[in-house]
Write a protein that binds this DNA or RNA. Structure first.
Lengths: 343, 343
DNA sequence: CTCTTTTATGTTACCGGTAACATACTTTCA
DNA sequence: TGAAAGTATGTTACCGGTAACATAAAAGAG
């Protein structure tokens, strides 16, 4: 049962009666191959189903055409927005003739991060896109220490001297809060994200800042913390409703929690937006289909992925003026908020 | 700005005053290296932070130690169970010293599947795990045609002569339906999954079969189709409630749709399980925390991933007795169903 | 104390490509 | 028309490892 001999560049060269080099030139569209030869070799490549061996190419060229996206499973499945960021990455990668692989980095791997870095040292990938890491991420530290090309996409807050693309969480949160204040609300609740996520902290910061700049007091009892999941949004809302201070609006650090919060409000007999106005963050695909359609801060998530990938693709050692790009956010007004008519 | 010369096996050999081969032996824990030499080389490897180059190893050994999981983004983010299947795969992969990469296969790539197969032809991966492909998947066809090692995990129905691991969808659906019938229900609704998914069809088949084997008529008007998402479960339930025939129980083809269905029932003023009993499929993590806790068919998802990975790891050309493994399902009884006291 | 076996290390060739340089054959143009 | 420039191909060495074979040194056997 002998394995079918691999069809290599040499096989083709032999059949064509040329040298390997000429075949290589055809594959890479070099000029200086006569039309006749080019045609013959092209035909043979099809006939014998020749596939260039990326391994060999990499070894020889030493400049990989692949990027690696690092994620943690836990995140992957709880937050719709990864779908969109991936699409952005894919676009940039495809457009530039690159490839993308996704590598997992679960807590069980923390001991052995070198599993990941060896992809870089083996010249299989050009660099890493690290998706919204927690602020304590040992991976980010290691990549930085070893000068491996990488970029953090989202949630960069808390890191120093790294390359990142992020959205303007603070300005976004301010827009949302300003909007609620403009509608007359004074008792505004807040449901935040996980403590170890920089983006969550920034949104909270923006919320506080907006209140203060309007001379409103920040009511700690109207603030609770979630984990970006719908269920925790539900629970947090329930807790906020038990408070003595009656809130008339709530700002949640993401849309999923807003969805949970709305359900909780309804289960308590309150109407949205008549009794309580709700603003989310993200503008995930289902935000516009919610009941009522959710007013939220739209992140340019697709572009986030695109920019991250482009950074790595253009990355060259030496051209390291520290790179940080903040993309603007936009308030999308839908029907989950209303005026407070109590003045 | 010269690049720091790569630390290769030759660098170490030179520093140690030995040949490359001896260094290679140390790296691979070959016997026949004197303790003294081994120690010296090990020290140098640490000192110079030497990382073996997987590319070179692959090119030389031609037996990759990496598996590729192929997914479609669309699925990835709508179905919690991928998280668990990945954990199963990771376990098997880790335990056997393999690596895992995830490759995306979105609709925009359909033209160019060879992007994927070239990972195999380049000897970078040993084979593919294809996760719950639609029955029309061109990828599966191509892998089969070109005799590339792969295994379909979940949703194998509809393919012939392929290797797969799957759960017993039919038996599971029968268990669920039998259970409802045993509680006295006769008007049982069904909310199915996408038409192009084998697993969805099997669950519907099991539902029909169970009804018939109890002499109950299958009411087509009590059956609707969803897409495995919570929202569509909600909508489907609403439609079923508009029917003239009053159902007393409903079986949904997955848990997410069950969740949506329960919300719809509640929004229509019906109580679960007092007025309508609900059974789901999957036993995703939130099933037990739902209100009421959901009775559902538990899939051994973690094992599904494990078995799929193990198959590929053990895969050898020639040992190809067609492989199909069906893992048993289990009915988990919680509080979303009750007796029907109308006899 | 020589002869075989085991242990320890080195040499050569190769995995499948590409870069860099060399060479032969055509054109082009002064 | 002959030299320079352009076109078409081949040769050699190398990317960073490993397999297979060769050899040298140490250990065990008779």
């Amino acid at each position: 049962m002998q394995k079918p001999t691999n069809v290599t560049i040499s096989t083709i060269a032999e059949k064509a009666g040329t040298s390997k080099m000429t075949v290589s030139r055809v594959i890479n569209n070099h000029p200086y191959v006569s039309p006749k030869t080019r045609l013959k070799i092209s035909a043979l490549i099809k006939k014998f189903k020749f596939h260039p061996n990326m391994t060999a190419v990499n070894l020889s060229k030493m400049e990989p055409q692949t990027l690696a996206l690092v994620i943690q499973y836990e995140h992957l499945f709880t937050n719709y927005y990864f779908s969109e960021i991936l699409q952005g990455i894919e676009k940039a990668v495809d457009d530039n003739g690159y490839d993308l692989i996704i590598l997992n980095y679960s807590t069980r791997h923390e001991i052995n991060i070198s599993h990941l870095t060896s992809w870089y040292y083996s010249k299989l990938i050009k660099g890493f896109i690290v998706l919204a890491p927690p602020m304590t991420s040992p991976l980010v530290r290691k990549l930085k220490d070893e000068h491996i090309p990488f970029i953090v996409a989202g949630g960069h807050a808390g890191f120093k001297n790294i390359n990142y693309v992020d959205v303007d969480n603070i300005a976004g949160a301010i827009k949302a809060t300003d909007f609620l204040i403009g509608l007359g609300h004074k008792s505004i609740g807040f449901i935040g994200g996980p403590f170890d996520r920089g983006d969550a902290r920034e949104r909270e910061f923006g919320f506080r800042k907006a209140l203060m700049s309007h001379g409103l007091k920040v009511q700690e009892s109207l603030m609770d913390q979630g984990d970006f999941s719908e269920d925790r949004g539900y629970q947090a809302m329930q807790r906020l409703l038990q408070n003595k201070i009656r809130l008339t609006a709530v700002f949640t650090a993401n849309d999923l929690m807003a969805k949970g919060a709305i359900t909780a409000l309804r289960d308590s007999g309150l109407q949205v937006p008549k009794d309580v106005s709700v603003v989310g963050f993200d503008d995930i695909n289902i935000a516009s289909q919610m009941n009522p359609p959710l007013t939220t801060v739209k992140q340019p998530i697709f572009r986030l992925g695109e920019e991250a990938a482009l950074f790595l693709i253009d990355y060259e050692e030496g051209q390291r003026n520290d790179f940080g790009k903040i993309l603007p956010t936009e308030l999308i007004v839908r029907e989950s908020c209303s005026h407070l008519w109590n003045f």
